[in-house]
């Protein structure tokens, strides 16, 4: 930790006193109470908390889609203003282009002039991604012809393919079955480690949060504030399929669950 802070003192993402209040038809909805959180370069941080506590809002702030009501969000030491092109954002709602096939949806970012890619390379990278998310055989299907979980995987492939330095992921594996979820978590770990990505990962699944993240942040019910932050004491690379049986895993799980369960109860009876 001390070595770390001498190497790079500026966090990749820095929320300081960030709060957000929405105004909806004359009503004020406070989504976030002031939040302080630093995400280091190449760190994998998972956010968990009851529905409506402001997790997606936090990601939107990093992407520059929203502005904080108070406080500041900085990225690489600079305040985020306007869209933040350094991040790849896999939103909660999948925003696939309905008129494009799986292949064409995945490759869309490489067609853009800002990272124009030769045709052959584009095809190859798309094919790699199709394999990675296990959609071979569906390359030429349209989004309406896919299941919810398949659409999520297309969205994941579309985000990973252009190798953004930071990933914002909003419940990326929520719609997948337990088996596939593990496989995707494993792939994600490999890619983010290999490409030294910084990740902000929202999930409802506490076990998933612990399995993939370096640090887990638990939020309170709306208006969200940080209730607990825990480092995950598991070495990398992790065996995603077995890590659940480690002693330290279950201890952390129990600890975080104690924090989370009160909030979930509060969150549901509002």
């Amino acid at each position: 930790m001390t070595a770390m802070s001498t190497v790079s003192a500026t966090p990749k993402i820095d929320f300081s006193g960030v709060s957000k209040t929405f105004h909806v038809r004359g009503q004020e909805v406070q989504a976030l109470q002031p939040v302080d959180l630093q995400v280091r370069k190449e760190e994998f941080v998972a956010l968990v908390g009851p529905s409506g506590c402001g997790k997606s809002t936090l990601l939107n702030l990093v992407a520059g889609l929203l502005e904080p009501t108070s406080g500041s969000v900085t990225y690489d030491g600079k305040p985020v203003s306007g869209l933040n092109f350094r991040v790849g954002y896999m939103t909660q709602k999948d925003t696939l282009l309905p008129w494009r096939t799986v292949n064409d949806n995945i490759g869309v970012s490489l067609e853009l002039s800002c990272r124009s890619t030769p045709r052959a390379e584009l095809k190859e990278r798309v094919a790699q991604m199709v394999d990675l998310v296990g959609l071979r055989g569906f390359e030429n299907h349209f989004p309406t012809e896919l299941s919810g979980g398949m659409r999520k995987r297309v969205a994941l492939a579309r985000t990973l393919i252009y190798r953004p330095e930071t990933l914002l992921m909003d419940e990326p594996f929520g719609a997948l079955d337990a088996q596939l979820k593990l496989i995707m978590q494993d792939q994600l770990q490999k890619i983010t480690q290999h490409q030294k990505m910084t990740v902000l990962f929202v999930t409802h699944d506490l076990a998933e949060a612990i399995a993939v993240a370096d640090r887990v942040v638990v939020f309170s019910a709306r208006p969200g504030r940080i209730r607990a932050v825990r480092d995950v004491p598991l070495d990398r690379p992790r065996d995603i399929f077995k890590v659940r049986f480690a002693e330290s895993f279950s201890r952390l799980h129990e600890d975080l669950w104690d924090e989370l369960k009160d909030e979930v109860v509060k969150g549901t009876d509002v």
Partner: peptide, 22 residues
């Protein structure tokens, strides 16, 4: 869908690319 436009913008699409592709 404004979200589609936003998705492409965030990927770095220019104005004319948003017009052509979305």
């Amino acid at each position: 869908d404004r979200d589609l436009v936003q998705t492409l913008r965030l990927m770095g699409a220019s104005r004319s690319e948003v017009i052509r592709k979305v």
